[in-house]
Design a binder for these strands. Structure first.
Lengths: 228, 228
DNA sequence: TGCGAACGTTGCGTTTGCTCAAATAAAAAC
DNA sequence: GTTTTTATTTGAGCAAACGCAACGTTCGCA
């Protein structure tokens, strides 16, 4: 059984009374998702919406020709799978656990009821949608106007902000992240990403190894982005 | 004064009673926006939300270095300026009249009230947000995985579907559309767009002149996109 | 502990699409 | 009707980034 205290501090639930919260949580079920398994897949009927309690999720779409594009990463305390909230019947993308994850899931058929009973939650969901819309607009602008080097630098900075963890020699992006992953976020190839990371390691502001990136000097990385 | 009949057939208002509709419309004011003037600008406080009755709108964002990116075009009977519905305080982009436009505007402060009184309208707004989220995801995928030629072809097809008008020799994109506009939609340069349009005109499936594009053979244009 | 698979690196040739530049054409302004 | 502005076309050279290919490294697992 889940402790309400675990969740009560989240901004999504700031307007909930203790009783509403435990009531709402009682309607969910906890899900444990092992690494590299999908919570749901593109095109599937949107049966549930989720709250990520622990882990990181990769939101991915696949092109007709089989290439993958990473739309975004979802981290702790984020809502996801909220297709129904924006009038969609199917999930528009696949949500893969980047590490072992824990989440709460509510059946989508509860959504109408949720609108009635927990308007503040709905508002926070709408806010999340708006933030994602802004975020993905930024991605379009980056892809349309900036060079690969800037795009990769920006992607690392975003991940650093989102999932960064202080370690001895800088800030670690705290999840497995391959060259290929980075290339799928930035619309380039793993080769180019590898070359960039090597060059940056030479210049001494990034350290990377297998599925691991540490930013040792974020100012320098930032400086790269503004070189427009 | 606006005739309710003008609007009652729109899907946004399908659940409205005649009385609700005229009441809702009474709270709006009609706006006439001359070509190339902005309804609102990026960063401005979101004072109003709108329904476009006639015309075409270009939604644009400007990069720090002054380049413009066209996020989307808005056409007849579309809602826009709905920042508040997704928890945003400021408009995230600039909305410019691509031609002389007519729209209805409601003050944003009415939004809370609207949620209470016209939930079906709110639902249609959310649906619009979802559709745009999907649309812009598609843009990201295109920019990340496809070549310029495909992207330009896809952009023309989308515009054709959205604003196409049958004419003698094919389907006209029924608004002023320069090479530069197309390049700002697809993340390329006006030069490359010009070269592509010239080549396509040679091959005989597009006719273009100053700020005007006619697709004379949409199958052939479609075929270009699938060349992946 | 050794094997295979997954991940990462790097060199080389090629190509796409950009930049720069100049000419032309069409519309708008006077 | 002439001038000015704005839009378009086209050529030539060049650079960013890709594709290919080969090799090196790390990890998991038997």
């Amino acid at each position: 059984m889940l402790d309400v205290a675990l969740i009560s501090h989240l901004t999504n639930f700031s307007d909930f009374s203790r009783r509403e919260l435990s009531e709402f949580i009682a309607q969910s079920r906890a899900i444990r998702m092992p690494q590299n398994k999908a919570f749901f897949s593109e095109g599937e009927e949107a049966h549930s919406f989720f709250l990520l309690l622990d882990g990181h999720i990769r939101v991915v779409r696949t092109t007709p020709s089989g290439e993958q594009v990473i739309i975004r990463y979802i981290s702790n305390n984020d809502i996801f799978g909220i297709a129904k909230a924006v009038g969609q019947v199917k999930y528009p993308a696949t949500a893969v656990a980047a590490v072992d994850c824990v989440a709460l899931a509510w059946p989508t058929r509860m959504w109408e009821d949720t609108i009635q009973r927990y308007p503040s939650f709905v508002k926070s969901v709408n806010k999340a949608v708006g933030d994602r819309l802004l975020d993905i607009q930024d991605r379009v602008i980056e892809l349309a106007t900036e060079q690969v080097e800037q795009r990769v630098a920006l992607a690392l900075i975003k991940l650093m902000t989102q999932t960064g963890k202080e370690v001895d020699d800088g800030i670690l992006i705290d999840m497995p992240l391959s060259r290929q992953d980075i290339s799928e976020m930035t619309g380039t190839t793993l080769h180019t990403v590898s070359r960039l990371l090597s060059a940056w390691e030479q210049e001494g502001f990034v350290k990377s190894s297998r599925k691991k990136v540490v930013i040792t000097n974020s100012q320098k990385l930032n400086a790269l982005c503004r070189k427009i």
